[in-house]
Structure formats: structure tokens, C-alpha cells
Amino acid sequence: MKKTILPINKKSWSWIWKIAGTLIIIVIIACNLTISSVDQPLTAAGGSVVPITLNCSIMSNNPQTSALVVGILVPKIWNASSNTTVTFTADQTTGPQPMSLIPPNTPSPYGNGLSWQDDMMATIGHANNLIPEYEWIAFQSNQQYNYPITTTETVTVSIQIKVSTNNVLFNMAYVLAESGDGLHSTAYPPTASTSYYGTAFPSKPIRINGTGNLLDFVNPQLSVIVPGSSIDNDIITIPFNAKADSNALSAASQVYLCATGYTHGDSIKVCEQTSKTQLVSTGQGQWQTNMWPRGFFNLKAGQTLDSMEYYFTDVTGATKVGYAGGAAPFSFTFSCQ
């Protein structure tokens, strides 16, 4: 019997395999976690519970069972890991499904040793918040779920954050992921890692109308003390952003602090151009100094600071820059609220 030879040569087979392989990969990677929209109030009262809803969809062509993961970028001052409740509903569930806080040191899958929170910070970022007093908190569903194959499932995540009483302006951010693939799955190498999570950055910041100094994470400012909630026995960081606004020290090569601390009915002024008051350059017009107010103002035992006023000077002390670049000093109230 004569052997039949197929009219396909070796080169053609090579092309057939490449095309078929690409099609297979396209089918497999058709995995999507998307946050379609965010319902988030523009303003809320200090100390209130802020309701936030993430409208999401999930689709995967690769059958798998894993837990739903939600990350939220928040100001540290809210202590949100202790004051947040997250639940979700989905097409396949009945009623709200509880989610629990992921402990801080839990490694993120494929996260190169980083915790979920650190991986979110490294991968998703900090949503252009300017004061480095923010954190990601992460929640995971208490149960694992089968991910829908070829069909899109609607998921609605409900977040309730009891915010602190502080005045805050902050850019929120959210991420939706699942516990099997994390943020960087290598299961399908040609697949972009962004296929394994969805993000949302609301176009407007949230404004918490509370008490005390406004902690404005959004607008560049000449100086915002960190941590915003601190007393005289904390170590506080006093920055000076020389490029944030037009001011007389925008080109200075040395910047010094001139501060007055107010105790009960008394004031202590430290205004000198020495190493004690000199700010250190951190590059690109950014300066800062770390201060322990009790030591800086040489307080006696039993003496406490209520507030502080300060401005910045050049090496001569003659050029002064205060609030909004003017002559009025910056003001800071020592409080844990």
C-alpha cells in the first residue's frame, strides 16, 4: 500500500503551531478582575463611618478556586485596619460574604517575599498622595470561591471605614485581586501581570471635615508636619518643600528652622542658625528635619507643649518663609486627635 504524504512541509507546521499556541494563550489569559466604578462620598464628617462601594466584574477562562482580595489605600491616621469592615456580594453567593483583614506579614503570592500590603504599595503605588503617611490595608474573603469560566460575574464590594476625627484631604485607591495569582502570577508567562488584578483611582479626593490642622495629602504645600497626630514626646518630621509655592527660599542652599513652642501660658523660642535647627536636603528642593519637641525646647519635667509656630530662614536669618510663603508662621497643634 502506498503511503500518503500530507502536503504540509516542516515550515508550515511551524507556523501552524505558532498560531495555535497564540490562540490557546489568548483563551487562557482571558482572565479579568475589573473595578468598573467606585461609589465614594466627596465629603464625610470626622469620626463618621464612610460607606464605599466597588462595582466589579470577574471573568476567567482558567478554572480555579481562590479567595477574593480587596486592598484599600488609606491615611495611617485612620487606623483603618482596626476600623474597617468589608463584605461583598456576587452572582454565585447569597447575601453579603464576610472578608477578614490580611495580617501585615502575610506574603503575597508571586510577590517576591513582600507582604500583600507592601506588594500593593510597590505595584499599585500611593495615588499621588504627597505626605508619606499612607498605607494599604488588605482584606480576603473568609471562603474560597470557584471563579466563573467564560462568563462574567458581577461582584459588589461594600467597604465601611470609621474615619478619625481629623481634617483630611486624601486620594483613595482600591485594588481587586484573588489569593491564587496575587498581583504577579507567573502561571502564564506571556500574560501581563496587570491581568491578575483591577485597580480604581477615584478622580476626586475624599475630604473629611474634622478637627485640627488639615492633613492635605493632595495639594503641594510648603510644610506639613508628620505624623499629623503627635505630642511633644513624639519625634516629628518638619519638611520644607521649597518648590511647592513661590517663596524667598526656593533657591536657598541652606535652610534653618525658627520655632516657638507654647506651653500653658508660656512660650519658648528657638531661633538660631546652627546644626540644631538646620534642615537636611533630600533633593529636588525638599528639606526636612526630625525633632523631639521636648528636647528641642528643653522642656522641664511636667511641662507640656500645646502648640508650635514656626517658619524657615536662610543662613543669615534675615530671609523668612512662613505659611503660604508669607511672613505669618506655620502653626501646629500637639494633639492625638
Binding site: I77, P227, S229, S230, I231, N233, D234, C336
Partner: peptide
């Protein structure tokens, strides 16, 4: 926390 309880050193 020598100052505010929320500040951990």
C-alpha cells in the same frame, strides 16, 4: 509609643 498611641516606635 511614647507619644500618641497611634505612633509606634
Amino acid at each position: 509609643s511614647p507619644g500618641c498611641p497611634a505612633n509606634s516606635y
